[in-house]
């Protein structure tokens, strides 16, 4: 089963992807690292920041790794490079 999720790109990840938001189709259940791989398949330049990025899944931080995600159509996934507020 797949679902349609909304991916948001910020800061350097938006520069590398060349897009700020898009909807992609992904398996409903996958690990956060598999989700990253799905996204890098679309935007290969993002591979450069793999070890300096985390996700926000439904506005909660998730590290790239073995964590299993259960996604639903309409979920928001943000690509979060190191933050620099303040």
């Amino acid at each position: 089963m797949t679902c349609e999720v909304i991916v948001l790109y910020f800061a350097r990840s938006a520069d590398l992807a060349g897009v700020r938001t898009e909807t992609i189709s992904v398996p409903q259940q996958l690990t956060s690292l598999q989700l990253w791989d799905e996204i890098v398949k679309r935007h290969s330049r993002l591979a450069a920041i793999q070890d300096q990025v985390v996700f926000a899944v439904r506005q909660e931080y998730v590290l790239l790794g073995d964590q299993l995600l259960v996604l639903h159509t309409g979920d928001e996934i943000a690509i979060i490079p190191p933050v620099s507020g303040g």
């Binding site: 910020f10 490079p81 933050v83 620099s84 507020g85 303040g86």
Partner: peptide, 14 residues
């Protein structure tokens, strides 16, 4: 507050 904001809040500076 400011130390934690700099560590966790999703804001970016160019």
């Amino acid at each position: 507050c400011i130390n934690t904001l700099k560590a966790t809040v999703p804001i970016w500076k160019k």
